Amino acid sequence: MTIKALRTPEERFANLKDWKYAPNYIDDLPGYEGLRMHYVDEGPKDAPVFLCLHGEPSWAYLYRKMIPVFLEAGCRVVAPDFFGFGRSDKPAKDEDYTFHFHRNSLKAFIEYMDLKDVCLVCQDWGGLLGLSVPMDYPDRFTRLLVMNTGLGVGKDPGPGFMAWRDYVATNPEFNVGDLMMRATPILDEDEVAAYQAPFPDPSYMGGVRRFPMLVQISPDMEGVDTNLKAAQFWNQDWSGDSFMAIGMQDPVLGPPAMRALQKLIKGCPEPMEIEDGGHFVQEWGEPIAKAAVKKFGL
């Protein structure tokens, strides 16, 4: 696979607020040779794993308030950046971004790292991709911590999402930091800068532009068949421990979407509601992480 990609300069990530985690890189991921993927890997290598998957247009930095809680519990935290985001390489052509391009890269990453006893931690595209994967590795995944996300099964997700999709389509060079601030008013200037850091200019924003267009809103879109199988897995075959948290102020993937997902997931208990929490609910994540660790008995 030869894909032209851009690489955000390392100096863009200097002195990130509340982010002390050393970067790790893979540049020989099977099927993705030549593209460099960034990931965080902290804690004991033989401990239960919290696999933290970010969404659009964020990166692993989104989990900085939850990672310390997982580590304090003695667990391992692995948090990759999808291609096109964070410190990972960013394919230059918008058409390189497809659902299975990213899903298969996530599968390749899990296999490359040989992750076991995994808690899938997901929100937004972290779930749109991540929730489709455990059915392929039922022996690797033992827990689920799910927040403000869903499975794309070819249905209209509602006016909130469509407004977002239209906004990106008509504003392809929007400022990521400004968007994060509007969605998450509790951020300060340094945190906003950290979210903007991966994108020195709009040429780096292929993934940001493409991800909203990849959400499966009609039955003929790529990935619907995969996600229908995943929905069946979560509803009938999932036997792990689950925890759900909902950012109640999310206009896109808020309470209605999450209540539907709760009903789908076998054995999913009553969700934790974060009343002030927006779409990027990890920014209110410390109490979520503590409650999940307690629920899981870790």
Rank of each mutant, 00 (worst) to 15 (best):
N227K: 12
D18M: 03
A193H: 00
Q236V: 11
F70R: 06
P172I: 01
P138N: 04
H100P: 05
H102G: 06
L35E: 05
D166V: 03
R209E: 08
P198W: 02
P269V: 02
A5I: 11
L179M: 13
Y63Q: 04
D114K: 15
L253Y: 11
G160N: 00
V77S: 10
V176G: 00
H54P: 10
A230T: 09
D114H: 15
D124N: 11
L16S: 00
L261K: 00
D201T: 08
D94P: 09
Y61T: 03
G254P: 02
L35D: 06
E33S: 05
L62E: 12
L53P: 04
D96G: 09
K17S: 12
A22Q: 14
A79N: 14
V224W: 03
V78H: 07
P200A: 07
T226C: 15
A79T: 11
D94R: 13
A92S: 10
C119D: 02
P251F: 07
D114V: 14
E270C: 03
M162F: 10
D94T: 12
G84I: 03
A257T: 13
V168Q: 01
C52N: 12
F70A: 09
A292E: 03
A183T: 11
D46I: 00
R103V: 14
Q282D: 10
I217Q: 03
L253V: 13
L179K: 05
D276V: 08
G267S: 04
R103L: 12
D188V: 10
E222D: 13
K107I: 15
V252N: 08
T142Q: 09
F296A: 05
D201M: 06
A193Y: 00
L35Q: 07
I265G: 00
S218V: 10
K294H: 11
S105R: 11
G34I: 03
G55F: 09
H100M: 13
R87S: 03
G285L: 04
Q196L: 01
A79Y: 08
A289I: 05
F211E: 06
A47S: 12
G207N: 07
Q123F: 03
A289F: 07
K155R: 13
P255I: 08
G34P: 06
Q123R: 07
D156T: 00
Q216I: 01
A5H: 14
G240Q: 05
W238N: 06
G285M: 03
E286A: 14
G285F: 02
W125E: 10
D41P: 01
A291E: 13
I288A: 06
P200K: 08
L298N: 09
M181Y: 13
R64D: 12
A14P: 00
P48A: 09
R209F: 04
E283S: 13
E95Y: 01
R76P: 06
W238R: 03
T170H: 15
F109H: 02
M1Q: 14
